[in-house]
Design a protein around this nucleic acid. Structure first.
Length: 417
RNA sequence: GUGGUCAUAGCUCAAUAGGUAGAGCACCAGGUUGUGAUCCUGGCGGUUGGGGGUUCAAGUCCCCUUGGCCACCCCA
């Protein structure tokens, strides 16, 4: 048993899996950069207060924050998400809107881990600040949609809803409170507690005894004012126009307090568990202001990379693909010829590996095979004497003798063909 | 944080009612001295997650502990 192992909920991601994560982020970056989004890097550690705006009543803040007091006696926290940081950055630097940014990186939540749910988890996401247009909501949703499609995922469901304007939401919350309170003991004890702290979240209860009550609960759709109603209608019409399939779910609420109007969530169809959300987002028009900036509309999403990768596994898409090597140098003389050859070939722009420790030819050939290189470049006493190398294709084809000076050119030729 | 469940070689798993731990894969080395992916042979490899207890004897029973998984809480 090793003396040390990863902390609970933390994990190592080994090659080639870590490379796969990297590639996934690259796919995401390509899509959003092509749409005019620029990368934003914010600190992993922020003032605790930045994240409190996510919602005092949410567990994310009340009990799952990785917070501590630093040596300067500042109350800080590891970020549980990036949206609040992005808004803080906007308020601090005041870039000219519209400000379209994307990010990727780790976030932290101190909660009990499960598969696809770690204390340190990766997210990719976008945020746009300074635009009220519902067509932007559509663009943002479409980017996430295209991302899943680019990975090859097919079983992803898009759920959308609107929480209305703050006043609508307040009236709805009041109505919900009244409705569930009237239900009395018919509502589970746990949900009755939730009703006090965060009434909207009662709709998210998965307790069987609550389901019929939830189904008959008032619908947010009946509380929109004209503006919110028009905004949401425009979002739906936009999605229709570009052929992004979605389902309107009036009972969809999201956990964070800052959401206003449009909210959406992507669910993985292959997950046979409650942990089926791949990502989600929405509008958070008041957040920048809450963080001390000017009143600024905002919309964005965050997608969980860990679960997305699991979804890819389930659907058998986006497999890890290690770098294809051009050649593997086998030196059965003393290893120094491999040193010279790998250096020369790498300088020539080729991807090349070799063996060490003076292993037998058979062992080196096994390594060459395992490396998945296209060719083995073999150097033995005979080759040294004649200033040549053996070039052996590892995926079929005849081995041939190549003058030492031509190996780079030969390799490049067979690589490009 | 609560509950359930599991934990044996690097990996996937075996081991009758408690009786001194096995296989496959992987890895390494050979198969008449320069060539891999197949095949054959051999080898390395575990104080059965850790600690304590019951017993003549524990991988197998009990307690504690650590971690995974599942559900809940909550959330991406």
């Amino acid at each position: 048993m090793p003396t040390f192992q990863t902390s609970p909920g933390m994990r190592d991601i080994l090659p080639p899996e870590a490379g796969r994560f990297e590639q996934l982020v690259a796919v995401f970056a390509e899509i959003v950069e092509s749409a005019g989004y620029g990368r934003l890097n914010t600190p992993l550690i922020e003032d605790y207060g930045v994240f409190v705006r996510i919602g005092d009543a949410t567990d994310v803040v009340s009990k799952e924050m990785y917070d501590f007091t630093d040596h300067g006696d500042r109350h800080v926290a590891l970020r549980p998400e990036v949206t609040a940081s992005a808004c803080r950055a906007f308020a601090q630097h005041r870039p000219t809107p519209p400000w379209k940014v994307f990010y990727s990186g780790p976030n932290f939540r101190h909660e009990k881990a499960q598969r696809g749910r770690y204390r340190q988890f990766e997210q990719v996401g976008v945020e746009v600040l300074g635009v009220d247009d519902p067509l932007l909501d559509v663009e943002v949703i479409a980017l996430a949609w295209e991302f899943y499609a680019a990975l090859g995922l097919r079983q992803v469901d898009l759920i959308v809803n609107s929480l209305g304007e703050p006043a609508d939401r307040a009236r709805y919350v009041a109505a919900l409170k009244e409705y569930f309170t009237a239900a009395g003991d018919a509502l589970s004890a746990a949900s009755r507690a939730t009703l006090v702290t965060n009434p909207l979240r009662v709709l998210d209860s998965k307790r069987p005894e609550d389901q019929s009550l939830i189904a008959a609960a008032p619908s947010i759709a009946d509380f929109y004012d004209e503006g919110a109603s028009a905004h949401f209608a425009a979002v739906c019409a936009g999605l229709d126009a570009i052929g992004v399939p979605y389902r309107v779910e009036p009972k969809l609420v999201r956990g964070l307090d800052y959401y206003r109007r449009t909210i959406f969530e992507f669910q993985g169809g292959t997950f046979d568990s409650a942990q089926n959300a791949l990502g989600g987002g929405g509008r958070y028009d008041g957040l920048v202001e809450d963080l001390g900036g000017p009143a600024t509309p905002g919309v964005g999403f965050a997608l969980g990379v860990d679960r997305t990768v699991l979804a890819c596994d389930d659907e058998g898409v986006f497999a890890a693909t290690p770098r294809q090597l051009d050649a593997f140098v086998v030196d059965v003389v003393d290893g120094t010829h491999a040193l010279a050859l790998t250096t020369e070939l790498r300088r020539a722009g080729l991807a090349v590996d070799r063996a060490f420790d003076g292993r037998s030819m058979k062992a080196q050939m096994k390594l060459a095979n395992r490396s998945n290189a296209r060719h083995a470049v073999i150097v033995g006493p005979d080759e040294v004497a004649t200033d040549t190398v053996q070039l052996k294709p590892l995926f079929g084809g005849d081995q041939r003798t190549v003058p030492r000076g031509e190996i780079a050119a030969q390799l490049r030729k067979s690589t490009s063909s």
